[in-house]
């Protein structure tokens, strides 16, 4: 566990998301007006400007859209190098930044991944992802 990771300032938009992480649930928003999923959470739907957003539980499955292997890091992250930071497209159609756990050789663009909640710092649970086994990936 690293120490000194920048702390999310939980706020009126984000609190249910971070509470979900601590409970082991990946929460995103869905717009009742246009039907699209929304991440990160906000007051108005960025697609149709409706305020009819509600929280839903995401499947936790997705696909790596792109990634980088970080070799030079600062502060609390220096101890982790090399590590993989990725953008993952959830099956619900939203994109989020995350870390990819596990064997680096499994990391490739397009790989199927599933969320795992990791206590990255004291009291800070982050949604990381791991590449699925070939057998279970779909």
């Amino acid at each position: 566990m690293a120490h000194g990771i920048p702390r999310p300032v939980e706020d009126a938009d984000s609190r249910p998301f971070w509470e979900g992480c601590r409970e082991g649930v990946l929460r995103i928003q869905r717009c009742a007006s246009c039907g699209r999923h929304v991440f990160y959470p906000r007051l108005l739907c960025p697609h149709c400007f409706s305020d009819q957003l509600s929280w839903v539980e995401a499947s936790g499955a997705g696909r790596i859209h792109t990634y980088t292997v970080v070799h030079r890091a600062f502060g609390p992250f220096q101890a982790d190098v090399p590590y993989v930071v990725a953008l993952v497209d959830l099956d619900e159609g939203v994109r989020m930044m995350t870390r990819i756990l596990g064997d680096r050789s499994s990391v490739r663009i397009g790989a199927r991944v599933r969320v795992e909640f990791v206590e990255a710092d004291e009291g800070l649970v982050l949604p990381y992802f791991r590449v699925m086994d070939e057998a279970t990936a779909s």
Binding site: P6, R7, V9, D11, Y40, T66, V70, F77, A86
Partner: peptide, 30 residues
Amino acid sequence: VPPDAPLTEQFERPFGLPTPVGAYALAAMR
């Protein structure tokens, strides 16, 4: 590395992507 990640930055900063270089690396890889 700042101690806090406020507003919309809270969904990226905790993951340790060095900025700005890491973001450009994500685009390059794609």
